[in-house]
């Protein structure tokens, strides 16, 4: 299984003030708050861990069908490089892998659960518009973005006539779609 999450950093700056009193303690565990304090780019670390938690929440939600808002149940660790981060998220005793792309404009995290691997996940980033599904199909005529019986996104590949589990995330200027090959 896979899940993804994108943060438009420009919009996040306007939308959210993580420096607000008590904000961090609702979202991040003590060790994670320490990562933020120790970093010389705290904004980046906040939204990196946020997107890691969200991407893995999407996997858990899809596996269980259960919704909740419990960011402290997802424990992040990561290695941060210049333009990406490789991490893992522990949830309820299970470890999920994450890969994050980091630019000045956005942070996108792909979370995946074995047997899915980074190599068999594909990511497409495009502009976010209202009615993005039909827009996406126009831009990528070989693919069709549709919903399964439960309303969850999937990708249909015309050439192989195969259907693939997908995860869609949109925030601000960005729409990111990840699917399992």
């Amino acid at each position: 299984m896979l899940g993804n999450d994108v943060v438009d950093l420009k919009l996040a700056k306007i939308q959210s003030n993580w420096q607000r009193k008590n904000y961090l303690s609702k979202v991040f565990l003590p060790a994670e708050q320490q990562f933020i304090r120790d970093s010389n780019q705290p904004d980046c670390v906040v939204w990196l861990m946020w997107s890691m938690k969200e991407s893995v929440y999407k996997i858990v939600n899809r596996n269980t069908g259960h919704r909740s808002f419990n960011p402290l149940a997802f424990q992040c660790s990561f290695n941060l490089f210049a333009a990406h981060a490789i991490g893992s998220v522990n949830y309820s005793g299970e470890t999920f892998s994450t890969y994050s792309d980091i630019t000045q404009a956005s942070i996108h995290t792909l979370g995946y659960q074995s047997p899915a691997s980074f190599e068999n996940c594909k990511i497409i980033q495009t502009e976010n518009h209202a009615g993005y599904a039909s827009n996406f199909d126009k831009m990528y005529p070989a693919l069709s973005l549709q919903k399964d019986k439960s309303g969850l996104p999937e990708i249909y590949i015309e050439s192989t006539r195969s259907t693939h589990i997908a995860s869609v995330s949109h925030h601000g200027r960005f729409l990111d779609l990840a699917y399992l090959l």
Partner: peptide
């Protein structure tokens, strides 16, 4: 990310503390 703000606003406005299980 704004759900956190809503929880914090509720705590302030209604003068209550919301634990993690409730926030979930």
């Amino acid at each position: 990310a704004n759900l956190v703000d809503i929880v914090l606003d509720i705590e302030e406005k209604f003068d209550i503390a919301i634990d993690n299980d409730s926030m979930a």
